[in-house]
């Protein structure tokens, strides 16, 4: 076979240049936000909640959720926590460096189905990134939705990502921030995110809840949401598993019969609770 026939190659990434890097959270498990633009006229459209496979050549690939709104066409944005081999390589990048991207992968949040509803977002740690495009889209299409509440917490005030953006958000949405432990100068809630949720107790009436964060947090948040009267099919979350191909072939991200990279990462609790808890 000729190389020219390898054009439609699902494993071949497009190239994109890093145009902006912002340090969100410092420390050992630091988070940086990378804004990239495609080279050679490449690119793709995505939906809120979808992911992309990013590569640093020589180090490998990682599945990262796309943190920019689909309405921003000229760039894509990713917030990456330093956790392992590939993500550390990302943290070593500088503006101007070129990375590989393939995608978009997975499903998205059914944002259009939520018109006329109240939206409650609950994020923790790095889990604000996957739901951030939904928040962005909701803000940009503010009239489509009713009340918007954003719960978000970090371990300490320094661990809160998108701090400036969250403050800006207060003009259009209710923002409830929290830190795990009491700190001097912190005026928001002290305690875990699920506790903050119960404290504010948003109404489940005509409301959709969208949550993402560490697995333990999600578990308690969903429990609390149900206590607040949210129906199972009105609770949405994203799950993550280790991925290598993002194409439903490499065989490791499956939860029961579903490959998270294809059928997920977005699930309603009504669907997710039917699957085995292998995530």
């Amino acid at each position: 076979m000729e190389e020219s026939k390898m054009g439609d190659n699902i494993y071949l990434p497009q190239l994109a240049r890093v145009i902006h890097i912002k340090e969100e959270v410092p420390g050992e498990r630091s988070i940086k936000t990378f804004r990239v633009e495609f080279l050679n006229g490449g690119g793709f459209d995505h939906e809120c909640g979808q992911c992309a496979m990013l590569s640093v050549f020589g180090r490998g690939e990682s599945m990262i959720s796309i943190a920019s709104s689909p309405l921003d066409k000229e760039f894509k944005q990713f917030s990456i926590m330093r956790a392992g081999r590939v993500t550390t390589a990302f943290h070593d990048l500088e503006v101007g460096d070129v990375i590989g991207i393939r995608g978009p992968y997975g499903n998205g949040f059914p944002v259009d189905d939520w018109r006329g509803k109240n939206l409650v977002f609950i994020g923790g740690g790095c889990g604000l990134a996957p739901i951030w495009p939904v928040i962005q889209t909701a803000v940009k299409r503010r009239d489509d939705f009713k009340h918007i509440t954003v719960f978000y917490g970090g371990r300490t005030a320094r661990d809160i990502m998108y701090r400036a953006e969250l403050e800006k958000l207060r003009s259009t949405a209710e923002v409830c921030l929290s830190v795990d432990k009491a700190e001097e100068g912190w005026e928001g809630f002290c305690g875990f995110v699920p506790a903050n949720l119960m404290e504010k107790a948003p109404s489940s009436d005509n409301a959709i809840a969208i949550t993402c964060g560490p697995p333990v947090m999600i578990k308690f948040v969903i429990n609390n949401l149900r206590n607040l009267g949210f129906q199972d099919d009105h609770i949405y979350t994203t799950i993550e598993n280790k991925m290598k191909c993002a194409l439903g072939k490499c065989g490791r991200c499956n939860v029961g019969k579903d490959y998270v990279c294809v059928k997920g990462p977005v699930y309603s609790w009504a669907d997710l609770k039917e699957l085995p808890p292998e995530y």
Partner: peptide
């Protein structure tokens, strides 16, 4: 285990 430890193996 730190990210650097993992990355530097």
């Amino acid at each position: 285990t730190t990210a650097a430890e993992k990355a530097n193996r």
